[in-house]
Design a protein around this nucleic acid. Structure first.
Lengths: 247, 247
DNA sequence: GTGCGCAGTGGTGTATACAATCAGGCAACG
DNA sequence: CGTTGCCTGATTGTATACACCACTGCGCAC
């Protein structure tokens, strides 16, 4: 299930997978496009077999849909779908947080979360918009990965990971491209306060609070989306995966 | 060269899919078993290609895991996984209900839900444990399918359907096999009251209430699981999909 | 005895030829 | 004039041969 197994394009099929995913995410293959095996195989200079294999995996990822008569089409996302995917991530991360709080987590796991929060703290400088962006972004991703597993449930961890796999719904969706907007950098202070609160709620076994906080935390991504739509729609083209969003 | 075979499945690959799924769900292929293409192909009297295709789809369904060096293993579920899957279904159905309430649903859609509820009402007789079981079961499934789509969000509908696809997490998981236990039949009165309440909460735009009700509704399945574990563990073997639960 | 290497074996990865199927148009027929 | 049915090209489904890779167990050197 996990894409642990795409090392370096060792096999033709993993190379095709990576290649196709790239083409889909950067919009080279628009949503709704039907993928034909023969032309793709020719283009990638491989046979149909690994192409099929790659498409099958992309269907697993949710980037392709199977069509009933056979074959695949690139899935289309509208802005409502993006909003809903973000909402779902919030809901599922909220569930992970709630279950972690209700069931309790080990002292070590809690210490690890606090360590990550401390690391995130260290990314902030004196001024409100002074942030070490790369470090923040990476630690933020780690925070969300750890949070997903904190309830000790593989099923929950998996589904959280799954919905966060859509690039525009991932916790770091807006990070790289909004980095030079001061308002966005300042908003990270709030996000970090939420990180802290989520951990403290889990530690205090406050399940409902942990869930609500995690949901609200995900809505930061939604606010960023709305900001982009309102202030500068052209920014969208630079956001990862948004090329496949049509509306 | 091959004759028309088997009632179900037009292509070899769909036949293999159905066959393999059956074998997994009835425990013929235990959790953790690695699936080898060649023996399976021989057993099903087809070539490796459709077997691979079928396994790929089963991985999509969540019944198989891909192993890093290639190939697939039957996914293992413990009882905690079952509990968590049920919990997740509740969470996602709750989200569908909440969003439906918050965003509002058309009069027609609401009428349809009420119609289903009326149909469910008609399944109950005079005595508390007098229930037309088959009719209830089918209408109940319809209710849950419609509920998943009620928010008008394809993303939400899809993810609800996905988590309900695990047979032991589905809304009708316990229906067929507990039908002759009077206590279970009586519990359906409560479930039906919840159906009614969910619809009324959505109609009244009471999102939080709708969400809470849908969550609690899913926990009926959890209570049934706990009942089975407590009262008569041997019943488990008759529940659909539980053969693949190991613990 | 221990580590290293090296083939053998079992399994998946890939190419490719051929079969089955689907969609669309065109023609014969009611 | 509509409807049916077949024809045909495009596309996927299937079988199969072969390539390759990973693991294992044995033997050899040290």
């Amino acid at each position: 299930m996990d894409q642990l197994n795409e090392p370096s394009g060792n096999t033709h099929s993993t190379r095709a997978l990576i290649e196709l995913r790239k083409k889909i995410l950067n919009g080279e293959l628009a949503g709704g496009t039907r993928l034909f095996e023969v032309p793709l195989a020719e283009e990638l200079e491989i046979s149909r077999t690994p192409v099929r294999e790659a498409m099958s995996r992309l269907a697993e990822e949710g980037l392709l849909d199977r069509v009933k008569s056979g074959g695949f089409v690139v899935r289309t996302f509208g802005f409502e779908d993006v909003v809903d995917a973000i909402e779902l991530r919030g809901v599922l991360e909220g569930t992970a947080a709630r279950l972690a709080a209700e069931r309790g987590v080990s002292a070590e796991a809690l210490a690890k979360m606090r360590e990550i929060v401390r690391g995130l703290d260290a990314c902030f400088g004196e001024a409100p918009d002074d942030v070490d962006f790369d470090a923040y972004s990476e630690l933020n991703a780690t925070f969300h990965i750890e949070l997903a597993g904190l309830a000790g449930s593989e099923v929950v961890r998996r589904e959280v990971a799954r919905v966060a796999r859509l690039p525009f719904a991932s916790p770091s969706a807006f990070s790289p491209d909004l980095a030079d907007i001061a308002a966005f950098r300042r908003s990270l202070n709030l996000a970090q306060e939420q990180h802290r609160s989520i951990v403290s709620a889990i530690a205090a076994r406050e399940g409902s609070r942990a869930e609500a906080l995690a949901r609200e935390h995900a809505r930061a991504a939604r606010r960023n989306l709305e900001y982009v739509l309102r202030e500068d729609r052209s920014l969208i083209d630079q956001l990862p995966g948004f090329a496949l969003v049509v509306d």
